[in-house]
Design a binder for these strands. Sequence first.
RNA 1: GCCCCGGUCGUAUAGUCUGGUCUAGUAUGCCGGCCUGUCGAGCCGGAGAACCCGGGUUCGAAUCCCGGCCGGGGCGCCA
Length: 421
Amino acid sequence: MSAQSVKLSGWVNSIRAVGGIVFLEVIDGGSLDIYTVVVKKSRNPEVWQRASKIKTGSAITIRGTIPEVQVSKRGLEVHATNLEVLAEPIDLLPLDPAGTTPALLDTIIEHRYVALRMAKQRAIFRIRAIVASAAREYLESNGFLEVHTPKICGAGAEGGATLFQLDYFGRRAFLSQSPQLYKQMLMCGISRVYELTPYFRAEPHSTIRHLNESWGIDVEMGFIDSVEEIMGILEGLIAHVFARVKEVASRELDALGVKLSEPRRPFKHLDYSEALEILKSLGFEIDWGQDLGSTEEKAIGEFMLKEGYDAYFIVNYPWDAKPFYIMRKGKLSAAFDLDYKGLELASGGQREHRYNELVENIRIKGLNPDDFSFYLKAFKYGMPPHGGFGLGLDRLVMVITQSQNIREVVLFPRDRQRLLP
RNA sequence: GCCCCGGUCGUAUAGUCUGGUCUAGUAUGCCGGCCUGUCGAGCCGGAGAACCCGGGUUCGAAUCCCGGCCGGGGCGCCA
């Protein structure tokens, strides 16, 4: 048996020198692995000389061997036979990559690239990537085609939400607030589509769960029998993502101190009217037809959790509280929200696919059908019954990583104040 | 946009209520030294902040008052 030789490139996260031995704690390019690089004066005077002068935060390449006998209690021990410093910091690090001295969220965001050397930060963004790939995996195995719709749009999607305006060769254009209208138009030619996409919203909110640029998983499916079919896909998607993260990201979850439990299935279907009853019993005064505010959502979340449900659908919303493209069922609608512990993760529903009814809905909402002609045209050529949902990717990652603020799970968040970096 | 709280060495904080004793304390990081198995290393020494910006009160302001900017939280807004 001989020692295995290795090449290791990464950053020095901490240095401990004990007499003629230098211990470098090194992390690699992205995993959660930690290496303890050992350099002894007696064995390698030249390398030791260099190692004892190295600065925390330096980017280095090590060549060395992995000894049979591992003494280090932390990380894989590597005995360096060569050490090359590729770049060293020219300023004090803006935060402690080893995580001993805490950093405020604002400091982390300002220096996210350095913060990513902290185990917890890596864990969050590794989980984020796993969530995205697990979602793709599930949707593709269910016959959904990934599509990419425009983010520069000539018309505001549904009216209502505030849009970012921009100049498009002298014409007025907007950043897409949602792929809603485009994914529906696609239902005239493809039966199942999905898109991982940014949503741009110019709302001046400042909360722990809103951003002006956020990411969503948008799904639309045609030839459906009922709205239940859509909820089935959404529930399956959520369940698959949780299961996948649990399966492949145990180290990341450990690093975050998160014990992830998969949501109880089947998800409870809570009627909007039932939700109002619950709220009434909790002392809230809500008139039928009103949308639920965040305080109400949280109260329902707590109530449902006591009943044993972390994830639940709220169904049968009043149509008045929903957008024009949602199918009407008298005073009610074929729309649903998916909430997880009081946080809205997704909303969706069956759409109105009949041309005349759709035009009528637009009018009822006080909008002008002419403004939607590019969209309405798609409903003239054999549009099947269809529906879908938009699932907030940031919020899903937030829930899985048990982050308190949505900014924690977005590398460079865009909020009202933050435009750089 | 409204309400509450905050802004002090690179980082994280103490100090502010009860103005002077703060030439601003501590931890970590940083610099120098000692130590051949540290692993939140240890020990010794050192540098580092006129306290977000502007104005005011006062003999005297990190501390009190006003405005602005920024941060955290709550609400509103939210296809």
